[in-house]
Design a protein around this nucleic acid. Structure first.
Lengths: 140, 140
DNA sequence: CCTCAAGTTCAAGTTAACTTCAACTTTAGA
DNA sequence: TCTAAAGTTGAAGTTAACTTGAACTTGAGG
């Protein structure tokens, strides 16, 4: 019982632990693995073991998704978790794609401002319309 | 070369004109109509006629999509284009949903910063790895 | 050791968001 | 007036991103 989990933070997770932390399902995580987005180590008995690094990568994937990037785009940004990292050409390719996406993020910021403005003015329009309707309440 | 649009800006569009402007397909526009997101007027011969207002609404829809909102969410934000605008209850409902989404936009801004940081640091990691690989060139 | 919740693979099913198709009708231009 | 391009509807097809199910294995607790 005097194992290494008492004072330091936990650093290894099972698939369901990780799923719970990220609020997705284990099968979603397996699905991302099938797509080559993550590549966890395996236990002697072949069960998946996730590190904090794996988790950070997953978080990045989920963040990308929340901004409307597809899994394929994300794969191109961060590369397949395997084989990559040793081919210079592959790295250069990812770099270029990353640069593009980082630039897109600037545009997203501007667009986000527009979206907010749109929604606010829409809200305002509804409010004025509401006032109008209050003026002529329905019978009874 | 008759110019029928030279004087003032054009204010009415056919479905394919609008599609071209927004860089989507006419069928996508029809699909959004089926979902109740837009409700263009019709010509005497039953063809769809879009106003600038319709176009603004569509732009808003597309913007929302680019930030990962689903069509159903967008529908709840801006309401169905019909019947709505005359039920106070419906307006209130939209207002509440809009407030939520406007708040979500604040979060998105923060998340966008994180995403950018993540991508930048990922890029940096790749760059360092690349340097490493350059140190041991594969062949002559 | 035994059990059983949790894990594994592979295949098939689901849903959202389009896209395509077939069979018409409308409209703009010669 | 004729005709070709563009528009219409309803239905079926496609794709991405999961989800579910069946059949089996692993591993922590009693």
């Amino acid at each position: 019982m005097d194992e290494k989990k008492n004072c330091a933070e936990k650093t290894l997770f099972t698939i369901s632990e990780l799923a719970h932390q990220l609020e997705i399902s284990p099968s979603t995580i397996r699905f991302y693995e099938e797509k080559g987005l993550i590549k966890p180590d395996r236990s002697p008995g072949n069960q998946r073991i996730y590190t904090k690094r794996n988790r950070a990568r997953l978080k990045l994937i989920l963040r990308g998704k929340r901004f409307g990037f597809s899994l394929d785009e994300i794969a191109e940004m961060i590369g397949a978790e395997e084989a990559n990292m040793d081919e210079v050409v592959q790295i250069d390719r990812s770099q270029i794609f990353l640069d593009q996406k980082i630039e897109e993020i600037q545009l997203k910021r501007i667009e986000l401002d527009y979206l907010e403005k749109d929604l606010l003015s829409f809200k305002d329009k509804l409010a004025r319309r509401r006032k109008e309707l209050e003026g002529k309440p329905s019978k009874d």
